[in-house]
Amino acid sequence: MEFLQQFANALTQGSIYALIALGYTMVYGVLRLINFAHGDIYMLGAFIGLFTAKLTGAFAASQNSVAVSPFATILIFIAAMLGSALVGMLIERFAYRPLRGAPRLTVLITAIGVSMLLEYGGQMAFSPDPQGFPALIPERNMVESGSFSLSLVQFVIVGAAFALMIGLQMLVNKTKVGRAMRAVSLDRAAASLMGIDTNRIIAFTFALGSALAAAAGVLNSIYQPSIDPLMGVNVGLRAFVAAVLGGIGNIPGAVVGGLLMGFAETATVAAGLSQYRDAVAFGILILVLIVRPAGILGRSVAEKV
């Protein structure tokens, strides 16, 4: 029972990591850039969700312990995803696009700057103190037997995460835009010669990744209802580790990596080492990079001289 319970918790945490890791992996695929600011987009998604909740009255309803209408919940998700997608595109347009073709280190330093801008701009705009998040999904247990319980929230998180991931997989593999994305990630110059507007595809990739991160932000805030402007730092880093673990640039890899990270973290906490969560995450990263830098599902590419 204890094991089953931990398994369910790990699956929930892992699906959230997987959603964020997808953004890292897609952006890395098209731009070969580690988007440091991605974890902060996740934070932004949670905050946009909170503001929409306040506007639609869901926040007040939740405080009076009245059930929030499902329409409000859906609206909050859509607002958070669209808002974050917009911010992601703006960041790409004004911070990364002018540096297309610049040395990778230059882009990396810019990404660190953008990340700090969002974190501390967020502290100024939303105050650095943690804030509560409304219970958008009723607190009810789906399954309950003995010490094992599976709450509706966990069920929704795993369900929504997997629905989004399957949707993304379809988008990438079955649509024209998806084909363009794959082409850009294979060879940007050649894709551009074949008539693909690479800038638009890159902007679209940022929008898509940011929307998924925002969804993860809202889902996680329902699960753990306390949000602050620095919440994206550690989660973002763990999701990045997940992306590398699964093989960066590889979409199914990000999902596998995210789930594995969820299990690793739950195991660490269950072993009573919750103080060392970050250390374990980075330990995994270092191990992967030393033993198999291409990740679990990635293919190693020989370096050409």
Partner: peptide, 10 residues
Amino acid sequence: YALILIVLML
């Protein structure tokens, strides 16, 4: 610091 990094890189 963030602004210094971004503006400088651009």
